[in-house]
Design a protein around this nucleic acid. Sequence first.
DNA 1: TAACAATATTTGTTATGACAATTGAAGAAG
DNA 2: CTTCTTCAATTGTCATAACAAATATTGTTA
Lengths: 149, 149
Amino acid sequence: MTIEEAIKSSIPLKPHTRTTLNIMYSSRLVEEKIAELLKPYKVSMQQYNVLRILRGQKGIPANLSTIQERMINKMSNTTRLVDKLIEKKLADRTICESNRRKVEIIITPKGLELLLEIDPLMAKCNEDILKLFSLQELNTLNNLLDKLK
Amino acid sequence: MTIEEAIKSSIPLKPHTRTTLNIMYSSRLVEEKIAELLKPYKVSMQQYNVLRILRGQKGIPANLSTIQERMINKMSNTTRLVDKLIEKKLADRTICESNRRKVEIIITPKGLELLLEIDPLMAKCNEDILKLFSLQELNTLNNLLDKLK
DNA sequence: TAACAATATTTGTTATGACAATTGAAGAAG
DNA sequence: CTTCTTCAATTGTCATAACAAATATTGTTA
């Protein structure tokens, strides 16, 4: 299906407009699928994203600015996002002793367990979304998208 | 720049995961640029999107469900989105006489003027975002993204 | 034609997001 | 050593999003 069909555009789009719309539209499709997968686990996509960043730290505590720069959605109030994870006992926060302006955030065993449970489903979800793509096509797509950055 | 570099991922990503992350990340980049462009005009991306849909109707009133199915972000409360446009006198809403459950939404002259003002800037913005791409690359990217739908 | 189902939109509620202002701590300069 | 600046995170406020429930109108059928 073309993007024009998807958004039922009567007029043909210019190539550049077509592409930016297509990127945004495709992203929505991906997000929808992922949000649906995460829903039963009561974590939002952003919360899940932060949990993965924390796991990626391999035990080293992360501070807020580290988390922010690694997020897919750079957002302003990461504090409250982390608050939610702490409420759910998926993460923990302490004040950094060497620099009391910073905080140290770590993932809890419960958080790690949750990620382990979701991991295979998320892998399958990503494969499902892209099931029509050959590895070579994935490569091409990735390389093209990388040109945006 | 690769997506791994962008999100500072220490571990290499699986091809499918890499691609879905890349699509979402790229979409954020595009959205950021567009939001920035629209900011001085005090309309959100979604509001702008709806205005363009209304213009595309070429005078024929649109009802809410039509707007919804044509939006990039299918969303639940289009009512309140349209409310905002009406507050700003960019759109008008009347009840459909032949089926009083429906509403008829049209863009006002002020709304059309606003779009005309934004049009060239938006075209330039899209071109800027994709300035490193040849027409052929845009085509390839579009065709690949179309496979998602 | 009264009762029920379907359609189209609206409203209420709660959670997130954007953005600015504020707080508290650390570092620098006189 | 006290003032100023910078840094890191938090908080307040308002706008938007998600989701469910409610309302109003029309269509259907027994």
